[in-house]
């Protein structure tokens, strides 16, 4: 396993360089054993949510399509097409399905900070 560099805070992790992110194309990262999906949008903002898709149980959110509903930036599951807010993780469109047993319908959102051209995710700050 590749060593994950640690930063000052014990829970905040440097994931990659900002330039490594392609606009509107997500990537997955392993942060302290958790899978995180990270998106750089066309406006330059970066968002991070859980990579686990609660409706299929597969770790695939990073491979979904980004978009918007009204003013809210969104990510759609690549498996059954549920749509979630990238701002607070709320499931906006359930496609008439329920999440897998033991899963909440909404996604966990992780705070992202940019420092010196690096993308930093803080697991402890999740909501």
């Amino acid at each position: 396993m590749t060593a994950v560099p640690a930063t000052a805070s014990s829970t905040a992790t440097v994931v990659c360089a900002y330039d490594r992110l392609t606009p509107e194309l997500g990537v997955a990262a392993l942060v302290g054993g958790e899978q995180v999906a990270i998106f750089r949008l066309a406006d330059g903002s970066v968002h991070a949510v859980q990579n686990l898709d609660p409706f299929s149980g597969a770790s695939v959110m990073s491979r979904g399509i980004t978009g918007s509903r009204g003013d809210v930036p969104t990510i759609a599951s690549p498996i059954y097409k549920q749509v979630f807010s990238l701002l607070d993780g709320t499931c906006l469109v359930t496609m008439d399905k329920s999440p897998k047993d033991g899963q909440a319908p909404d996604l966990v959102v992780y705070p992202v900070t940019l420092d010196n051209g690096q993308v930093i995710i803080d697991l402890a700050g999740s909501e």
Partner: peptide, 17 residues
């Protein structure tokens, strides 16, 4: 080809789930 990476910070790790 960069897109075909499991984890941006751990490209040699397979999805553990």
């Amino acid at each position: 080809l960069q897109q075909f990476t499991s984890f941006v910070n751990a490209p040699d790790q397979a999805d553990p789930t």
